[in-house]
Design a protein around this nucleic acid. Structure first.
Lengths: 336, 336
DNA sequence: CTGAAAGCGCTAACAA
DNA sequence: TTGTTAGCGCTTTCAG
């Protein structure tokens, strides 16, 4: 069964294709009678507009690319949901690619998306600076690009969606202190990720304020996996560095750490309290449930989609940075 | 900066567009000299083929739709990875939609994908039968559709990718018995999902074989969330039904159950062993780690992609059902 | 109010 | 070996 086109309708009704088109588009220059006939015939024959033809006509692909570091945690899927909330009703398709935290794959993905003629790209970086020229070239080629969560350095001209990393990291650490913790370790991610520094700064500010600073308590990880979180606490333990609580950069790192603590029969939160940043479902499926900074992921996706739409409409519209509010959720992992 | 087209190249080199086209396509009827000039000019001016034009030309959208129940667990993203392994190099784009385990949303997604002119659809159902006519209509309209994991009833003519559900469910239960468990509970998902029955049958077969049958030990859940898993054990406990182990339909259900057991201070695996089916990373991030049947998710995605490609190439090619091998992974949750 | 024709970018007969 | 032309499905001037 071949697809029904406007031409088929035109033959069927002995009308020109332009009349059919006008009828279907609710053009004013059309006899209501004719319009009705066309619409009915379209319905009857099962006519569906061919979006490809339209895209060619208007020089758009109506594809938006999304690049994320991973989809193992629900983080990206939540953001995707937000993006689709905005973009689906407008007829945009979202093409998803995963970079696996690997800048080389990210680069490939970007290339792929460019070949796919996407009208814009929404991206969560896996490395702050390594592909900077690639982003620049994209922007030069008038392909709008919006960064969210893990963004590039300030020199890059583009819109961004982020959260109040530093402030909320401070609050988490302050919360740990308020519950009586004095030796607060920080598991930070790799330094090639921007927020890592932001959240670490929040941490440092507060421990300094309370005179609890100890550089030994900060462990940087190689990557962002559960395994990296494990290794981080293991390192602390192996080095015999005493700590009574942990603030981890992400849920993933925190959970990896928790698992190692469990295996060592270290009680959470009695012996070691633990808190993190992200706020995905993951925080609620471990035991004890994880205190974490909840990011409005779906809203972030919506905001990013909105920003990309603005850029698509007018490529020279000014860049915006949207900072979203997060919420600190207290759970059993830091209970007293 | 406007996109460079074949026309621009033709003007630039004073050649016809067809010559340009031929050069770019490595046609045999072309002077190597000319070819070289064209390729160089294309490079220099930054020519990129316009896929939309090609799609229109060939009557394809080169879009494949993917419909999954959720992306909270890594299940679907793993499958997606497999699909993309096959489809990306061929220039296909994958459009992802989530049905949230809601047949109505699934229906909307399908409608959306049809409007998007996808060349084919790969789908993991959220309800065995509710949207059957929709799938049928899609097939009638010559839109190839491949089902994986949760498939529809046999009456539907389409290719499928599944796993050896019943056999492996049996093995899990047998494993529990071998480790000395006698009161094995089964948390099954909603009966509207096909594999639920399959895995339950595997369970029933084995408990019957060992004379351990007790209908009270089977709990069906309303949905597939962590919460549903929680509620299931809670029900058993509230009813004072004694059990020393659990076989859960999925990792999600199992983890929900684990959490409730933890809260009730019931030791895993000492008091209650627990095993499940799925084999995502989720099984390894809880404590104790979960014994589970690992499905070759990436491979399943690849297989599904392959099947859809066959159908795209030849819509009348015969339907296939691929049954993939799974692997039972023993972990601490069922240790003795 | 309706029709004819051009054009979006590209390929593929058909001519030359 | 290269050029001319038609056409994929649709919208949109421009005529009528």
């Amino acid at each position: 069964m071949k697809r029904v086109t406007i031409k088929d309708l035109s033959k069927f009704l002995s009308l020109s294709t332009s009349t059919i088109s006008r009828a279907l588009l609710n053009d004013k220059n059309i006899n209501p009678e004719t319009q009705k006939r066309v619409v009915e015939a379209a319905e009857k024959l099962g006519y569906k507009p061919n979006s490809t033809a339209l895209n060619l006509k208007y020089g758009k692909s109506k594809n938006i690319g999304l690049v994320v570091p991973e989809m193992i945690t629900p983080f990206s899927s939540k953001v995707l949901r937000g993006i689709q909330n905005v973009l689906d009703p407008l007829g945009y398709r979202v093409i998803i690619t995963q970079s696996d935290e690997n800048p080389l794959i990210e680069r490939e993905n970007l290339k792929l998306l460019e070949e796919f003629n996407v009208d814009g790209i929404i991206i969560n970086l896996c490395h702050e600076s390594l592909n900077e020229e690639v982003y620049k070239k994209l922007i030069e080629n008038d392909i709008p690009i919006v960064f969210f969560d893990r963004i590039p350095g300030k020199s890059l001209q583009a819109s961004r969606v982020i959260v109040d990393d530093q402030i909320k990291a401070s609050l988490v650490v302050e919360h740990l202190i308020n519950t009586g913790r004095k030796r607060i370790a920080h598991i930070m991610g790799p330094l090639t990720i921007r927020n890592v520094t932001e959240r670490a700064n929040g941490y440092k500010r507060i421990v300094a304020k309370y005179n609890l600073t100890d550089p030994d308590l900060i462990v940087s990880t190689e990557g962002m996996t559960f395994e990296d979180g494990r290794k981080a606490v293991q390192k602390l333990l192996d080095k015999n560095i005493h700590f009574d609580s942990i603030f981890a950069f992400s849920d993933t790192l925190a959970i990896g750490a928790m698992n190692y603590l469990h295996e060592q029969n270290i009680k959470i939160p009695e012996e070691v309290a633990i808190a993190s940043f992200s706020g995905t479902e993951l925080a609620t499926i471990v035991h004890p449930q994880l205190t974490t900074v909840q990011q409005p992921l779906e809203k972030m996706g919506e905001a990013a989609a909105q920003l990309i739409l603005e850029k698509i409409k007018d490529i020279s519209s000014s860049d915006q940075t949207i900072i979203m509010e997060t919420e600190l959720i207290y759970r059993a992992s830091t209970a007293t």
